[in-house]
């Protein structure tokens, strides 16, 4: 497993909002150690429907609870400020779920996080799950099973679909990381791939990409040079027309660049197995697993 486990102490920024509160409850129900909520001017209260204390500032919450990770649910225009507060307070891991953040804010945030050595996942991402240990984000926990497959993905529901295929085939996951579908983001494929490479519990890595940008092509080069564990890739958007934004802010073929074809070609050239359907991902992974896991 990577990034999070059952001992990770987590605070939630925006835990008193509607979405923040409902997902905080779900994360707690999954077994995640949610130790604090942070909402300015709400210090002293509890996260609605729970006994989790709310603090005015991230600093207070960290001092009182020892939290090292923050999950951010605050509205888009407040994310840059909220995340900067967490970085300033000394947080180690930031998971930004919020969608619709103006990209110039994200660029400033990413520069800040990198300068301070803070690991940042997202924005516009489903979060991270280490099955049976911890869930930071909005992923539906029941779909995931514990096992040897590490997953890294730009997408939310497509990750669930592929996790479902894997779990149905009894291929559990070590950790699944949704890096998000925005053009500018915190962690990119190479950082997550390196963590899986160094994680003794991960045997096979699944990389889920989509059209737009060149992150998958760069990942292919990176894998060829640095990753010894087998990788199975899936790229969404083979039928996407050029010049149209396909839902995610980053999913657009522009000036003939960022096509699924180019990404699949680059991955295959790096000897990476490319699956054409979610089920085929599971079939290819099954062949690469040394010790099939049993229920």
């Amino acid at each position: 497993m990577i990034l999070v486990n059952k001992n990770t102490k987590v605070l939630v920024q925006g835990a008193t909002g509607k979405m923040g509160a409902s997902h905080t409850k779900r994360m707690v129900a999954y077994g995640t150690q949610i130790v604090a909520g942070v909402t300015p001017a709400r210090g002293g209260s509890k996260v609605p429907g729970t006994e989790i204390p709310v603090y005015d500032t991230v600093k207070e919450a960290m001092d009182a609870t020892g939290a090292t990770a923050s999950v951010i649910f605050v509205p888009p225009y407040l994310v840059l400020d909220a995340a900067s507060e967490a970085i300033d307070a000394g947080i180690s891991l930031l998971v930004v779920i919020t969608e619709g953040i103006p990209p110039q804010d994200t660029a400033k945030l990413v520069a800040h996080a990198r300068a301070k050595g803070v690991k940042m996942i997202g924005p516009n991402c489903p979060g991270i799950i280490t099955p049976t240990e911890a869930l930071l984000g909005i992923l539906p926990g029941s779909i995931f099973k514990k096992g040897p497959v590490g997953m890294v993905s730009k997408s939310g529901t497509l990750t669930y679909e592929i996790a479902l295929s894997l779990s149905d085939a009894n291929l559990g996951q070590s950790t699944c990381v949704g890096v998000g579908g925005d053009p500018v983001k915190g962690m990119e494929y190479p950082e997550v791939l390196t963590m899986f490479e160094n994680d003794p519990e991960t045997e096979v890595i699944v990389l889920i990409g989509e059209i737009g940008g060149s992150a998958e092509e760069e990942a292919a080069e990176f894998i060829k040079a640095n990753i010894k564990k087998p990788v199975v890739a899936y790229i969404a958007g083979q039928t996407a027309p050029p010049g149209k934004r396909m839902g995610h802010a980053g999913a657009i073929i522009s000036g003939g660049k960022g096509t699924a074809e180019s990404k699949m070609k680059a991955l295959k050239a790096a000897n990476i197995e490319v699956a054409l359907t979610p089920r085929e991902v599971a079939e290819k992974v099954a062949k690469l697993i040394k010790q099939p896991v049993t229920k």
Binding site: T157, L158, E161, A236, G237, Q238, A240, G247, H248, T277
Partner: peptide, 13 residues
Amino acid sequence: GAGLTMATMDMVK
């Protein structure tokens, strides 16, 4: 979800 929508289109094709 955008990724799932694209994946569904691709499977149809």
